[in-house]
Amino acid sequence: MVLSPEEWEAVRLSLAVAGRSVLVSLLPAVLVAWVLARGHFPGRMLLDALVHLPLVVPPVVVGWGLLMLFGVRGPIGGPLNDWFGVRLVFTTEGAALATAVMSFPLIVRSVRLGLEGLDPGLEAAARTLGAGPADRFLTVTLPLMSPGILAGAVTAFAAGLGEFGAVITFASNIPGETQTLPLAIYSATQSPGGEAMAARLALVSFSLALAGLLLAELLGRRLGRWLGRP
């Protein structure tokens, strides 16, 4: 199966957008997961609900929300554009941002699950051995929650390859700029004679997603063994 240059461009763009989205959302997602798993504060339930919103709200609505906030006239997008010359709408970075927001809850859920499965007794043991908060986070908590982080990141990456609604609404459908795999497939199905292209890209999309999930499973097992699990 041979892909045309435009098709390769869509594949490359999808990988770039998904990769950047994971980079952007990983650290905040770990922090939020930490707060949700360990924190006790008023409004925790509200934060929990807000984080999970992208899972249930139509992606188009998320895209529209981003457009309102990050558009060149928006409360965040305005200053970004005026002061730093950074424009997110209709750019690859914007597509990555939209994808990051959509996959954020996936990472949070996975990290949080890993955290909640972690025996707090091990952290208590580290305390009695003289490890302060940052020390025991880096030497005990983080290594033990790393399978959760990894699984979350890979799942988010695989899902991010296929984000459609939020990307097309916020970043539009610009070939070479924001036209990722699903957008390219959509465009192909809309143009006469594009069936073959749509089929090829759909196959690529399917293969990438499957490879991503298999990779996550494999890495998870490796990591589990490294962590001393059966």
Binding site: A124, A125, T128, G130, R136
Partner: peptide
């Protein structure tokens, strides 16, 4: 005083060795 500064070594019933 925080546990990490008490210098009280603890041996727990379930050992609590770091698995990694």
């Amino acid at each position: 005083v925080a546990p990490e500064r008490r210098r009280c070594g603890v041996v727990f019933q379930d050992a609590r060795l770091f698995p990694h």
